[in-house]
Design a binder for these strands. Sequence first.
DNA 1: AATCTTTATCGTAATATTGCAATATTAAAT
DNA 2: ATTTAATATTGCAATATTACGATAAAGATT
Lengths: 110, 110
Amino acid sequence: MGATKTDHFTNKQNELATLTKALGHPARVAIIDYLLKVNTCICGDIVNELPLAQPTVSQHLKELKNAGLIKGEIEGNSICYCIDEKTFAKLQHFFANISTRIEKKKNNCC
Amino acid sequence: MGATKTDHFTNKQNELATLTKALGHPARVAIIDYLLKVNTCICGDIVNELPLAQPTVSQHLKELKNAGLIKGEIEGNSICYCIDEKTFAKLQHFFANISTRIEKKKNNCC
DNA sequence: AATCTTTATCGTAATATTGCAATATTAAAT
DNA sequence: ATTTAATATTGCAATATTACGATAAAGATT
């Protein structure tokens, strides 16, 4: 097997899983970190920042883009990647909501 | 290959990646959802809630536990699993922090 | 003690992910 | 028109993940 049974779960569950899965690799976290650090939108030097080969970085960027965590716009012969604010806002709400739900039932168990 | 180069990234990056990776599967999100829904700490009926076989659920629980997202205490011949509040608080801070950083540089790019 | 209940582990098959060299693509620069 | 620079794609090997049947382990029940 190895194939996830996505159809058995709710849309919200699948959405959160997709987003967190996309972030679930240190290289991809590092890319997000870098995009947050540089003040202007970066245009290509992520490869130099990471200890990974160019095709590998390109693949990670693709995954982040597919998940909607970053956007990429062609700019000349390079590409301008940047954070997709809306998606991160959504993630923040997910976790804020979870924390609220946790708060409500404090000390009810272990 | 297929082996992640964790040693090339910062502790924070690896930590966030580990936590999000652990959440990066709809079954594991569903488990967390269920633990948040039931008011008392659950003691075993997660298997009935999920469209997955018992060994598969057990494996997902193990991963959530390894990542520190849930705790499990033996209680009679069953086990009481519940949310680890501290870890979720940490996750919330991670994303709140990211959102703050995004806010600071709004409209600087794409 | 024998049985039941609950959870974990083992073994294994199917699939997915990670990483990179080689190559392709595309636009800018010469 | 060639060359250069930046990024993407392809193909492939190594490893990891997902899922489950079979079985084990351990406390509860009879």
